[in-house]
Design a protein around this nucleic acid. Structure first.
Length: 339
DNA sequence: GACCCGTGGAC
DNA sequence: TGTCCAAGGGT
């Protein structure tokens, strides 16, 4: 059964592979590990459509991992703005510098796993796709496809071990990279979360979930928790057509990103923090923004001044705010003020 | 294992 | 409109 599955899937992939910017075309030399790695990191929890323009921008600006390694971190952070999960950008720079230092990407799953930002999935994916190593690549697509193919009814995340065992079983010894990408293409276009296209599926005759009648109900997932709503304040301080931006510290929420000064809402603040300047503040409105595990109502207040706010920051020309690389929350706040 | 960490699109 | 979700990793 395992050999049949991988064979049918690879045949399907040869005919129906998606044409994606980070994939080698037929006739291309071996895939570029830099582009494979960069795309895999960008694609973590992020849709193909969202990644495409960022991938083009990054590879144009930094064509090699050495170029990226030589770039100031804040430039990379600004280029990542809007893509989310900013620890990826922080780790991207660290990993690029480690790779440049050692003279190239490691080629084994185990060694790749040592690089910051490469977990079990990404290390396996890069090993398989860039270096043609046999590796068991398990992402959300594979979890869905395998759950249905083997009719695994135990809910996630408890079923992960069983899923991995089954994925291991059907991973071929050769073309592991194509197999991994085939599983992802199948999951993205045929074995979709909602309304799977079973009639078009190359694995329909092997699929136990389909045989048992309810593939769309798999995988079963644990119920989600409700998101609390937090309140916060942010301050727009303007002087000579420039706005005061700070850079958020550490590894926490939006860490490393440029931002408006705020009252500490991300640390659990309740919106009662003191403003960074005295004087008359003018309400500019409220931004609503939903993060992974809470929603935020951010009140934006503005003031024009001739003073210098305390602490570290920079005056950023308002007509060049696009280049500051504000994360979406603060880009929304800026839009509100400038509307 | 649980929780933290963004965002925009589909329905 | 709210909900779900997408090529996860770090702690």
């Amino acid at each position: 059964m395992a050999a049949i599955v991988s064979e049918q899937l690879l045949d399907w992939y040869d005919a129906h592979a998606r044409d994606l910017p980070w994939r080698a075309r037929p006739g291309d030399p071996a895939p570029d590990p830099y582009r494979v790695w960069l795309s895999e990191v960008m694609l973590q929890q992020t849709t193909v459509a969202a990644v495409k323009p960022y991938f083009e921008a990054f590879t144009s600006r930094w064509p090699t991992v050495e170029d990226l390694a030589a770039s100031p971190e804040e430039d990379v952070m600004a280029a990542w703005a809007g893509l989310g999960y900013y620890s990826r950008a922080r780790n991207l720079v660290k990993a690029a510098r480690a790779v440049a230092e050692r003279g190239g990407f490691p080629e084994t799953e185990k060694a790749l796993r040592e690089l910051p930002g490469l977990g079990a999935y990404t290390a396996a994916a890069v090993a398989a796709i860039a270096f043609d190593r046999r590796a068991v690549v398990v992402d959300a697509n594979v979890e869905r496809v395998v759950s249905r193919l083997f009719a695994i009814r135990e809910p996630l995340p408890g079923s992960r071990k069983a899923i991995r065992t089954c994925a291991e079983e059907i991973t071929p010894d050769s073309r592991a990279g194509d197999f991994a990408q085939a599983m992802m293409d199948l999951g993205a276009t045929i074995c979709t979360s909602r309304d799977p296209k079973c009639l078009l599926c190359p694995l329909q005759t092997a699929c136990r979930g389909r045989a048992e009648g309810d593939p769309a109900l798999l995988p079963v997932k644990a119920p989600k928790k409700a998101k609390p709503v937090r309140q916060g304040k942010a301050w727009w301080i303007e002087r000579d057509s420039a706005v005061w931006l700070i850079r958020r510290e550490g590894k926490g929420m939006l860490g490393g990103m440029r931002a408006l000064p705020d009252d500490g809402w991300s640390a659990g603040g309740d919106g009662s923090g003191a403003p960074p300047l005295d004087g008359e503040w003018q309400g500019a409105g409220v931004v609503r923004h939903t993060f992974t595990h809470f929603a935020l109502e951010l009140s934006v207040e503005r003031q024009s001044t001739r003073e210098e706010p305390p602490g570290h920051g920079e005056w950023w020309p308002v007509d060049q705010l696009e280049e500051a690389g504000l994360p979406t929350l603060f880009a929304k706040a800026a839009r509100l003020v400038l509307a």
